[in-house]
């Protein structure tokens, strides 16, 4: 789409786009280029010189059992976060949609965790499940369950998933509720008159109509789980026990800043860059389709 009426001038628009272009160049393209460049080298231990290794960092990473494990961890983690946060949100949105008068009140009660930073959510959940002082951990102990996410892989994963999903429910709820409220009530009612019960209506009418929204949320939530949950993992488990909750973004950080393995960290950045590009393209394909209809 283009404007029919435009202003004359070449210098002015140039000056107007410059702030954004300069910042983008300095803080986006240059670092991204550096990441790609560094991914082809291995620095010596003193950081004095770099040895060119071609795709060596990549072949090493792809053969590295820790990196592969991190891929699997990321897949498990993001699948669980997406399913839990979308599942709970859909359930709540369906309920709220049935209460026409008070759905607004419930919306207010449910949306504010969007504003809680993942890192803060992490601290809150850590407090509940802390092995020494955590209330939930203590009551579990009373029930005979010995909770210890510091040592137990599964419990650590469960905790970071729930803490990450908790803050995300509000976002998904908001979009699901909007999607549900956009479905014409007459459609549901005529099905009800025909004798379709709630579940049948949900399966045959509501869910199919919600599917574009569901797909959109699926992509957005995967992006969230991949990149924005760093704070949750850093506050609760720091990637542990061993590497049980080291997702890819966490590994870029721990290898690059803690382990000072710059070549490997850069190569990991490039791989992530690739993953984000694919997710972004999927998202855009979807948006394009939505715009055309």
């Amino acid at each position: 789409m283009e404007k029919r009426v435009t202003f004359k001038g070449i210098w002015l628009p140039f000056v107007l786009v410059m702030p954004q272009i300069v910042i983008t160049a300095v803080f986006f393209f240059y670092p991204a280029g550096q990441a790609i460049w560094q991914s082809l080298f291995i620095p010596d231990p003193f950081g004095l010189s770099m040895q060119y290794v071609g795709l060596g960092n990549f072949t090493f990473l792809l053969g590295d059992p820790f990196y592969r494990a991190s891929f699997v961890t990321t897949a498990v983690f993001s699948t669980l976060v997406t399913l839990v946060s979308m599942g709970v949100a859909l359930y709540l949105a369906v309920l709220a949609d049935r209460l026409i008068k008070s759905s607004g009140t419930y919306r207010t009660l449910l949306i504010w965790p969007y504003a809680v930073a993942p890192a803060v959510a992490g601290v809150l959940w850590l407090f509940m499940f802390n092995t020494r002082v955590g209330v939930v951990a203590w009551y579990l102990g009373q029930l005979g369950y010995d909770w210890n996410h510091v040592l137990n892989d599964g419990e650590a994963m469960g905790l970071v998933v729930v803490a990450s999903a908790w803050g995300r429910i509000s976002y998904n709820f908001l979009f699901f509720l909007a999607g549900l409220q956009a479905i014409p009530r007459s459609l549901i009612e005529s099905a009800a008159i025909e004798g379709a019960r709630f579940w049948t209506r949900f399966r045959t009418i509501v869910f199919p109509l919600l599917s574009p929204m569901t797909f959109f949320l699926l992509v957005v939530n995967v992006v969230y789980a991949f990149f924005e949950t760093f704070g949750v993992i850093h506050t609760i488990t720091s990637g542990g026990p061993q590497q049980a909750t080291t997702i890819l973004v966490y590994k870029v950080f721990s290898d690059g800043f803690v382990g000072q393995d710059l070549g490997s960290s850069a190569a990991q950045s490039v791989i992530l860059l690739f993953v984000v590009s694919i997710l972004t393209i999927i998202q855009f394909k979807y948006i394009e389709r939505r715009v055309h209809y």
Partner: peptide, 17 residues
């Protein structure tokens, strides 16, 4: 293109800049 470059994937070089 910057849509595809969240800060999390370019932390080390951005830090250096």
């Amino acid at each position: 293109l910057t849509l595809m470059l969240p800060v999390e994937v370019r932390i080390v070089p951005t830090y250096e800049v």
